[in-house]
Nucleic acid binder design. Structure first.
Lengths: 342, 342
DNA sequence: ATTTTTTACGAAAACGATTGAATGGCTCGG
DNA sequence: CCGAGCCATTCAATCGTTTTCGTAAAAAAT
């Protein structure tokens, strides 16, 4: 009927010593005789004692838990990043508590507050697409709960950040399309509130500029980072009088929607329309034609974010200089963008 | 510099009453005068007081946290199930702590022990493919930490379980292939330690029997539930002197590998080989040809598992009769299995 | 032999909250 | 005028652990 877990008190009673002695013996304190230590250790092992982390938390005000807020767990990019966070957290004795913002600012705010009341030791977060206020993160920082951003970051909060060079990745993707002879290159951008959306757009724009290719307003549209948005925008773009001959989608999820739409509409990729996405989800290479994409090391991003966070947590009160780690993207060229050069 | 969070004690001091009075006032106890209540409530609001859940946990021996162990977060089936768990846990004031077994028994054991020492209120788990001992779950139950299984369950532990009718799903998938005129139907099963693997195999076998179709030993192979395994097995199957004209893969991840391999090898689906998977991942419908599959309501599975778990948690000590919820699968017929009937 | 130091341990406070029991003051009935 | 009863509040214990401050006895130094 539920054997209550053994406490230090029981060991003490059993051995006719005080709780303090037991505690010290377990921590191998020098002021306990070798003999007593042995007796305590032996009994503790025998009773399968393990210290109650909740009591410790109360005492030390440290929970050994870190929170992570992502827009959507089921998104492969995020679940992979979570796996990265979990990887280093686990190896350092921390546990990961998951929260989803569902792309909603309100939910993100509630999640952040929850993390504060729950006394997590820190937070790793990737912003919701609708967030434009960031005070909830500042509140956490003021309560000595460090925050580290990854991927979807903001300049409004000074802290560690981990992301990829979105600008450069987008630039290279666009440049690649241009080099394959595409002239009418459309861009489906992400929600403009997110810096990754803006940076990717800028990469696109500057590549177009560099090669002196005209950008048309109607060829630049915006969508949430999901498949439905991609499909919708693809229909919209292909309905234009002047159709694009290439589409650079700000994410693979958008690109998946475009891919589907183009097939529905009977376009051939890349002959009619070249397509390239961003993130290189595992599925992208399985599509037919396989989708070109700008690869992001999602697992590694999670790992590094967790490392930086743990660093902040474990060096509390010692001021550090915050860094922004910019990881490399890698252009994965596949059939969807390999237009024959005429 | 980190404003320490307000405690009941401070409110008490400020108001010149005792901690008990404050506590009772906050809980709206009848033995506190209306006036005092108002004063306490007002100050609490003003100081933005929120009770320390750790102190509560220590006192009540309840953490309002549930653990979840899955083989791999980044697997879409599991991340979706996690989202389901998170959905109901969140709405009932519980938090979700994530653990990965990485398909390893040892890691699963460690995770389970961690959950015990961390004093989670309960556990939702889907077994690692290498697990064949289950004492770690029994240990949890003996410590009054209820466990609920989903998808990958075991008969060895009596508790609530949530899964789909794997047998029937497999039977229908196989039947469908037969009805499309396939005669040489291979099956790539999952790891035999998992009951889902065995049930799916049995569904396949019984369908073959029902229609009097000969099963060949060399057409039944086994693989881990991942893409690489599928690819490998596909090569193996297609190299046989007597090639199969259809493959029923025990999971979509396996089927993805098969899909890729068949394309590499130049087979047409479904003309040369019909293919069907299990789980209906979001990507499956995006492949070319789109992959037929047996859909599992992963999100709902997670939800129901969480509901059952919370029921167990909140009715501790009142004995319940355990149930196994069997959800329905749905056969998603797409091009990969739609062989022309000759 | 006396003082000082070391050794080995215990008592109690602290962390933040809840709660059963006790207490002080008050009113009221007899 | 005294005891009963009630109200509002406080006291103290509890949860499991660490840690500061004592302290008795033993060992060492004088």
């Amino acid at each position: 009927m539920g054997k209550a877990s053994v406490t230090i008190k029981e060991i003490a009673r059993e051995l006719n010593v005080s709780k303090s002695t037991v505690s010290r013996a377990l921590r191998d304190s020098s002021e306990i005789s070798e003999e007593t230590k042995q007796r305590v250790l032996e009994l503790a092992r025998q009773l399968n004692y393990s210290p109650n982390p909740i009591a410790l938390s109360l005492l030390k005000n440290r929970t050994h838990t870190i929170g992570i807020i992502v827009p959507d767990i089921a998104n492969a990019f995020f679940s992979s990043a979570i796996a990265g966070v979990e990887d280093v957290a686990y190896s350092r004795g921390y546990h990961v508590m998951i929260y989803q913002s569902h792309e909603s600012y309100e939910r993100e705010l509630i999640d952040a507050r929850h993390i504060a009341t729950r006394r997590a030791d820190g937070l790793v977060v990737s912003l919701a697409s609708s967030s434009e206020r960031y005070d909830h993160f500042r509140e956490l920082q003021e309560q000595d709960i460090p925050v580290v951003f990854f991927d979807r970051v903001t300049d409004a909060i000074t802290t560690h950040k981990v992301l990829v060079d979105d600008y450069k990745g987008a630039f290279e993707a666009t440049e690649h399309l241009i080099q394959r002879g595409c002239q009418r290159i459309a861009h489906i951008a992400g929600p403009p509130k997110l810096s990754i959306s803006r940076n990717r757009f800028n990469g696109y724009k500057d590549a177009m500029d560099k090669y002196g290719i005209a950008m048309r307003d109607e060829w630049v549209v915006s969508s949430e980072y999901n498949q439905a948005g991609g499909t919708e925008r693809a229909y919209q773009l292909m309905a234009l009088r002047e159709r694009p001959d290439a589409i650079f989608a700000a994410s693979d999820r958008i690109a998946l929607g475009v891919h589907w739409a183009l097939r529905q509409l009977g376009y051939r990729m890349p002959a009619d329309v070249a397509l390239i996405g961003f993130s290189d989800l595992a599925i992208s290479s399985l599509l037919d034609p396989p989708l070109s994409s700008v690869a992001q090391p999602s697992f590694e991003i999670g790992q590094q974010a967790a490392e930086l966070l743990l660093e902040l947590i474990e060096s509390r009160n010692t001021p550090v200089s915050f860094e922004t780690r910019v990881l490399k993207t890698k252009l994965m060229i596949r059939k969807s963008s390999m237009k024959e050069i005429s």
